[in-house]
Every structure is written in structure tokens, then in C-alpha cells.
């Protein structure tokens, strides 16, 4: 019994040590973001600021157009998430409930394109968007992301698990396909839809390479792109840089903690990379 307790203690010790290593960067970020400038560059480092400087957040916020960046990020996040949900629900319904010519073929082609790395699509998409005159507009940040093969795949699997008898019953009661989808299937698929929405929201909020390439003016930048340009301007003002980084990192951490059940289940079920 004593040996058992000893090994339990060892497990906790390892897990706690690991957790400290995982959390340390965040602690260091928040600690630095609250320091006076003269406390930032000192050795040995001070973990708890002697005087908490909330004003660093205000200063960082106004040192670059973070208000614009945030509005852009929120607009892109909300519109691409809602848009993707709608296209996904419609397509997943067709793939799971309507037996049409070429269904398996189209679905396999879609799955096949999932293997292609996004980097291959970058250049032709840039050309397409230039020809449409969308570069440096919201359309370029939103429209290409309004559908996701992966989400269609995930929701199709979920729709398969909903008993077919439900739709027969609804049809007998005179319910149209379209109404059945929105008033029966969609509410039943809520957990899967939440998973899809959160993963999309996280991906959209954190996206970097795409917004970097399709935006050129300051007014169109999203938060990660704006943060990069701020990082050159801020120079060695690490307290401001850490405050700005916190403003991008913390919203997603909060979202994750509140809705983690859906994220972890989604990742475990499908093994996706967000």
C-alpha cells in the first residue's frame, strides 16, 4: 500500500511539474504586462510586479489601432462561422439524407482535396481575389472560408446517427424536407454544431498567413497581423507587447475554458488540427 501511495505521489509530482512548464509562459506574459517599464528589464526577474500597472493595457490599446484590428477580427469570426455553419448544415443533409446520382463520387473527391496543404491554394486564390477586386476587403478575409470539407464530413457522420424513422414520421405529418432539417435535425445535432463553430472561431481568430497576404492597409488588418506590426514598433517595450499579446490570447482561453467539453470531444473524435 505504501508503495502505491509513493507512485501516486510521483505521478502528481510529474503532472504538476509539467503543468507549471505549460503555464509559465502565460504567467510570465501576464506578469510582464502589469509591470512598470523599469521592472521589466531586470535580473533576476521579478514574478510579481511591485506596482500593478493596469494602465499598460490602455497604453498598448492606443499605441496601435487595436480597436480597428479587434473589430475586423470579430467581424471575420462571426460572419465566417455563421456562413460555414449554414453551408455545412445544407451540404451534410444532402450527403446523409438525399440519395442522388454521384453522391459517393463527389464525397470522395471532397475528401481527397482535404489532403492538399493550404499553401498550394494560396497563390491561385490570391490571383482570383485580385481579379475580383477583393484584396484588402472583408470579402477576401471571409468568403474563401465560408465552407469547410472537414465540417461537412463531421456533421454528415453525426446526421447518420439520427434515426431515419424521424423523417418518415415528419413526412407523414406533412413536414417539408427543409423544415424538417431546421426544426428537427439541427436541434438534435447541436453538440456537433457547437464543436464545429468553436473550432472555426478559434481558427479564424488565430489565422495569420491568409490575412497577412490578402490585406495591405492598416484598416483591414486582423489582430494577429496587427500584433506583428506592433511588435516592430514596440521595440523593447515588452510590458506593452505582453499586454497586447494577452488581449489576443485571453479571449480564446476563456472561450476554451467555458466550452472545453465540446472542443476536447471534437478533437478526440475526429483528430483534427484546429
Amino acid at each position: 500500500m505504501q508503495k502505491e501511495a509513493l507512485s501516486k505521489g510521483f505521478i502528481y509530482l510529474l503532472l504538476i511539474l509539467g503543468s507549471i512548464l505549460m503555464l509559465l509562459p502565460f504567467v510570465w506574459m501576464i506578469s510582464t504586462s502589469l509591470k512598470l517599464p523599469n521592472e521589466v528589464m531586470i535580473m533576476p526577474p521579478k514574478w510579481i510586479p511591485s506596482d500593478i500597472q493596469w494602465s499598460n493595457y490602455i497604453e498598448a490599446w492606443f499605441s496601435a489601432p487595436f480597436a480597428i484590428y479587434s473589430v475586423n477580427s470579430v467581424i471575420v469570426l462571426i460572419s465566417s462561422t455563421i456562413g460555414e455553419l449554414i453551408t455545412t448544415i445544407l451540404a451534410a443533409y444532402a450527403f446523409s439524407r438525399i440519395n442522388f446520382y454521384g453522391r459517393e463520387l463527389i464525397f470522395s473527391v471532397l475528401l481527397g482535396t482535404m489532403m492538399v496543404p493550404g499553401e498550394v491554394l494560396l497563390i491561385p486564390n490570391f490571383v482570383t481575389l485580385s481579379n475580383l477586386g477583393w484584396i484588402d476587403h472583408y470579402q477576401a478575409l471571409i468568403v474563401p472560408w465560408l465552407a469547410s470539407i472537414f465540417s461537412i464530413f463531421l456533421l454528415r457522420q453525426f446526421f447518420f446517427s439520427i434515426p431515419k424513422e424521424l423523417s418518415f414520421a415528419a413526412k407523414i405529418d406533412g413536414c417539408s424536407d427543409f423544415r424538417f432539417l431546421w426544426s428537427v435535425m439541427v436541434p438534435l445535432a447541436k453538440p456537433a454544431l457547437i464543436t464545429i463553430a468553436i473550432l472555426k472561431a478559434i481558427g479564424s481568430w488565430n489565422a495569420f498567413l491568409w490575412p497577412l497576404i490578402v490585406t495591405s492597409s492598416e484598416e483591414m488588418r486582423t489582430l494577429p497581423v496587427g500584433l506583428i506590426s506592433f511588435s516592430t514598433d514596440a521595440g523593447t517595450r515588452y510590458e506593452l507587447l505582453m499586454a497586447a499579446s494577452s488581449m489576443i490570447i485571453l479571449p480564446m482561453i476563456i472561450l476554451f475554458i467555458v466550452l472545453q467539453k465540446y472542443i476536447i470531444e471534437g478533437v478526440a473524435r475526429a483528430g483534427i488540427k484546429g
Binding site: L23, L227, S245, I248
Partner: peptide, 24 residues
């Protein structure tokens, strides 16, 4: 709780955490 802690970095912006690591 442990699972949440280990998963945290995954949901954060690569750009923002890279800047934090630049400071580390």
C-alpha cells in the same frame, strides 16, 4: 484540470504566443 492546462496552448494564437516566447 490537468487536461485543460496541457491543452491551453493549443487554442492560442501562434503569433501571440511566439511573441511571448520571443521575450522568454
Amino acid at each position: 484540470l490537468f487536461r485543460t492546462i496541457y491543452f491551453l496552448p493549443f487554442v492560442t494564437s501562434v503569433v501571440a504566443v511566439s511573441i511571448v516566447w520571443r521575450w522568454i
